[in-house]
Write a protein that binds this DNA or RNA. Structure first.
Lengths: 261, 261
DNA sequence: TCAAAAGTGTTGGCCCTACACCCATGC
DNA sequence: GCATGGGTGTAGGGCCAACACTTTTGA
């Protein structure tokens, strides 16, 4: 974490710090102190799983999109608002998954800045993960960030503070919930092929699955509807298109797709 | 929640409110504002699953044991401290499971009391669940409570605020984690019989399990060590005693006891 | 000796693995 | 037509539910 300190204090008097200071007073007024939200936003683009990251202005460090909770706002409203401000998207699948409350989680990060600065508080951060249709998002850069981009989960840049840990925990949770929550439904476009769905499962589980068995197992769940179209255009045989039968899917998930005593 | 208001304001000038006011000033000094912890402490006494509840002084309402996070304290330290203050026990299995952050979760509860009162803040509460060996706990009554007791989960008294909801969510989580975490290990005494273990599973899952199949499945996991003793004294055949082989158990749980692609 | 609970055996079915085979498509 | 990838068939094994049988204990 020492590196964070060096990076930030290089720019001690520069634009980022000025902006943070300007925002500080109003933040104390409208937000609950000591509490923050950090969101791990997953997207899938047919070949890899991606996460939405924000590059902090004038630094080399990336961060998870995050924010604070207004004094008169439900927790889930806050998480949705923060996500909408970044992606323009509403009605996103969004779940809290863990609280990050270590004393030293932002250690050194704002060293050298005045104690009265909102951002220098001790924050207990509530981690959310979100699933979005990669094709339907407009990324928005705000005034504390240089960039806002999708990054492949197997080639993440260096993240600030404990955000790498937050991401790791989110991925573990996503893996666990693959059989209990509508993960596929929220990450894929409406119509998709069986190989695409299998690819998604393989990437999330980080494991090769047998093609034929995956195919039959999925069909046996009886949550997919086969369409009368196929995906033309690629080389080789055109795969059939499917979409989720949402009612059946929701129903099946109640019991979990797999396991059980 | 209206009923909470009535119950509390009956005693508006009485001892509970006096105690809360005395504690208020120091609370503002040492704790992080707006944040609380509520713990669902599970115990198992051979025939039923129990939860630790606290009866608030001079009211008819019960509550989950809870507390606050010190300004210079890790989140997990706070949860452990709160639990130790109630049970005298340390090294307890303790997991955060969900945040309860609705605006109105304590609505009406402290109506009529001064806004400066620590307890009247908006609290975002972090829910933990704990598993303890029922036989090794000394319940402790503090100065805001009349009673501290184990209550059977199928006959819970009325709980204050949203504590019933917190309990329900904890039970759902416990059920889900039965195949992924050392639930049995932490709820049972060191030595136990197969029927006792089965009973625990049946209560948590709220489902009858086939005796013979449970027996063999458990043995197949290869996480139990059969002892050279049996539980004499009951009527009928004396069942064999087992204990967990902790190393094998921990190892097996890494992959989950059941399911999997 | 008998009832009841614990421990064990057995059978049929489902799902999973694995691998093989056919089919459709673009080059 | 041929390589490639998608859809389907199939044999073997493991686990599971269901049920029956045996063993052990206290009354």
């Amino acid at each position: 974490m020492k590196s964070d300190f060096v990076i930030l204090s290089q720019y001690y008097l520069m634009e980022l710090v000025k902006i943070l200071q300007e925002k500080s007073d109003i933040a104390w007024e409208i937000y609950i102190p000591n509490l923050s939200i950090d969101s791990v936003v997953f997207g899938f683009d047919k070949s890899s799983l991606k996460v939405l990251l924000v590059k902090m202005k004038e630094t080399a460090l990336w961060a998870l999109p995050g924010g604070y909770i207004k004094k008169e706002e439900h927790l889930i409203e806050a998480a949705n608002r923060i996500l909408k401000d970044r992606t323009g998207a509403e009605n996103i699948y969004l779940q809290q998954f863990r609280v990050f409350g270590d004393l030293n989680r932002s250690e050194y990060f704002f060293d050298g800045l005045p104690d009265s600065l909102w951002h220098k508080q001790r924050f207990v951060s509530i981690g959310f993960y979100a699933l979005v249709d990669y094709t339907k998002v407009n990324l928005i850069i705000d005034d504390t960030s240089d960039a806002c981009e999708w990054k492949s989960i197997d080639a993440l840049p260096e993240l600030m503070m404990d955000h790498r840990n937050i991401f790791d925990k989110a991925l573990v949770r996503l893996r666990k919930e693959l059989n209990h929550k509508p993960i596929g439904l929220n990450l894929l476009p409406e119509k998709f092929t069986m190989p695409e769905l299998q690819k998604l499962y393989e990437i999330i589980l980080d494991k090769k699955l047998n093609r034929g068995n995956f195919y039959r197992k999925m069909l046996r769940y009886d949550i997919l509807e086969k369409l009368d179209e196929s995906r033309k255009g690629g080389a080789h045989k055109a795969p059939d298109l499917y979409r989720f039968d949402i009612e059946k899917y929701q129903n099946a998930l109640k019991n979990g797709l797999n396991e059980g005593w």
